[in-house]
């Protein structure tokens, strides 16, 4: 694949002497939305932590837009991806404060005008406009998940990493989330989840094999 945004090659991760990922390979094309499925505790979150540079693999490489991820390059490469955790902990304060906080960082200051999109995204994701004034600790798990998704989308990164994004969403909220994501044709996504319904409109669904190789589009 020549237009791969993310290339993971022969990734090996061991934690506490246990093989979490064993020679795992995967490519995500530009604009492609890929879901990796696996049961709990089999390395899905570990995979995303490796892509984010929070965990160093024992061997293997990860490249984002052709640039290898390492301890130094990750600082600039993180500006090309955004992340929604399984149970997002966005920090203290009101929703509007939490959404504005990333734009205080030097790397994001030029994107501050993206906050104008918040009312539209709240509507799209079936959240009340009043939620902006609420404190984060007063929100339900599903509300936090959708606020975390808005925070990630506002950063306009080419690659979106989603960890079990639908885990705490009800049926209507899930539909709103997946419709929002499907309406972003340029957005590359690497999502992980237990089942195919973690990203039902994915271009490709791949099981996470132990020592297997996943590559290419299933189109």
């Amino acid at each position: 694949m020549t237009d791969a945004i993310l290339q993971i090659s022969d990734l090996v991760v061991q934690l506490g002497g246990k093989h979490i990922l064993d020679s795992f390979s995967l490519e995500v094309g530009t604009g492609e939305q890929v879901l990796v499925t696996a049961p709990s505790g089999t390395g899905k979150s570990t995979l995303l932590r490796c892509v984010l540079g929070f965990l160093s693999p024992q061997s293997g490489t990860i490249a984002l837009q052709g640039k290898p991820i390492d301890e130094l390059s990750i600082w600039s490469l993180r500006l090309r991806m955004s992340y929604v955790a399984q149970e997002p902990v966005l920090g203290d304060g009101s929703v509007s404060e939490v959404l504005a906080r990333p734009f205080d960082y030097r790397a994001n200051r030029d994107l501050r005008q993206n906050l104008d999109r918040v009312p539209g995204l709240l509507t799209q994701l079936r959240l009340s406009q009043d939620i902006a004034d609420q404190q984060m600790d007063s929100l339900s798990g599903g509300e936090k998940q959708r606020i975390a998704l808005i925070a990630a989308l506002l950063l306009d990164r080419p690659l979106l990493l989603l960890d079990e994004i639908s885990a705490s969403l009800d049926k209507d909220s899930r539909e709103a989330v997946f419709t929002t994501l499907a309406a972003l044709p340029e957005q590359s996504i690497l999502a992980v989840g237990h089942h195919a319904d973690a990203l039902p409109k994915a271009d490709r669904i791949e099981p996470l094999p132990l020592g297997g190789v996943v590559s290419g589009r299933n189109e």
Binding site: L52, F54, W75, R78, L79, M81, S82, Y83, A85, E87, P88, V89, L90, G91, R101, P102, D104, Y105, R106, A107, N108, A151, L155
Partner: peptide
């Protein structure tokens, strides 16, 4: 204790000093 929030901050593009 807040490592998940801290790592999210990094994921959002903060440098270590930020």
């Amino acid at each position: 204790r807040d490592h998940r929030t801290f790592e999210l901050t990094l994921a959002q593009g903060a440098q270590l000093h930020e």
